[in-house]
Design a protein around this nucleic acid. Sequence first.
DNA 1: TGACAAAATAGAAAGTGTTTTTATATTTAA
DNA 2: TTAAATATAAAAACACTTTCTATTTTGTCA
Lengths: 137, 137
Amino acid sequence: MNELQKRLETYKRLGLKLTPQRLAILEYLENTREHPSAEDIYNALKDRFPSMSFATVYNTLEVLIEKGLVKELSIDSSKKRFDPFLHSHHHFICKQCGKIFDVERNFDILIPEELKEFEVSDFQVVFSGLCPTCKKK
Amino acid sequence: MNELQKRLETYKRLGLKLTPQRLAILEYLENTREHPSAEDIYNALKDRFPSMSFATVYNTLEVLIEKGLVKELSIDSSKKRFDPFLHSHHHFICKQCGKIFDVERNFDILIPEELKEFEVSDFQVVFSGLCPTCKKK
DNA sequence: TGACAAAATAGAAAGTGTTTTTATATTTAA
DNA sequence: TTAAATATAAAAACACTTTCTATTTTGTCA
Ligand SMILES: [Mn+2]
Ligand SMILES: [Mn+2]
Ligand SMILES: [Zn+2]
Ligand SMILES: [Zn+2]
């Protein structure tokens, strides 16, 4: 089963209609580790879909998030970034260029005592500093 | 030395001009653990300064961040939140009500091997789930 | 296949939070 | 007290996101 067939399956399974725009958005997300913003996605696809609108990108992201296929990152305070990799992982953000990198290492963090009244469902470690490229300058 | 005098000192030391608006912003920040947004600050002060503008709030926050007296949090993707507590600490954000709580416990996280080409200057642990109030509902 | 209902699209407008601009006012140092 | 430097309010501009609506596309079923 090839990649396209998988995407077809994915949308069908979720009861979503198949549209070329949706398939392209999922394809783009699956093939990037760049944690793109909505605009990045729009720009990447506008050659193939010259009439594509931002509303479609945002709508599609909304349903993908709702269905749990994409996660929204709040690491960059200027805009939302999207991550199609659902496995537990963490991130590094470069203070200079803003790029976000995956950190795959697992951390054994035990829920601190002070949160015992809370219902903790998740945690994220966000490292920051300079990426290799910005470090050299 | 009282609180006001300390704030006077603080601004003087940084070479910033003393204005009632600035003093009030610093006072508000020093007395809250709510991680307020710019609008929260504005709302908290508009009774005392009915003519206060958003620009003043944003300008003041900008210089305070520049001078290292306040940290900007990127935990809430819908708006920036501000934290005047500079000591190393972490956070919990409630997925329901959006409130941000401090987590004072220290975590011994060693910089993972995969970041050895990076210059890591900081890390933040962000827990998420439900706060005690939202948990009960 | 063709017709229909439901859902998605493009494009524009509106909504939010943030930043910039400008004329005026205040602060500080001389 | 005066002058220069800086901060202010108010409005406009801006960037990102959401909403609206007319039109098109999709999936279903005859
Ligand atoms: Mn990731
Ligand atoms: Mn805090
Ligand atoms: Zn970088
Ligand atoms: Zn809550």
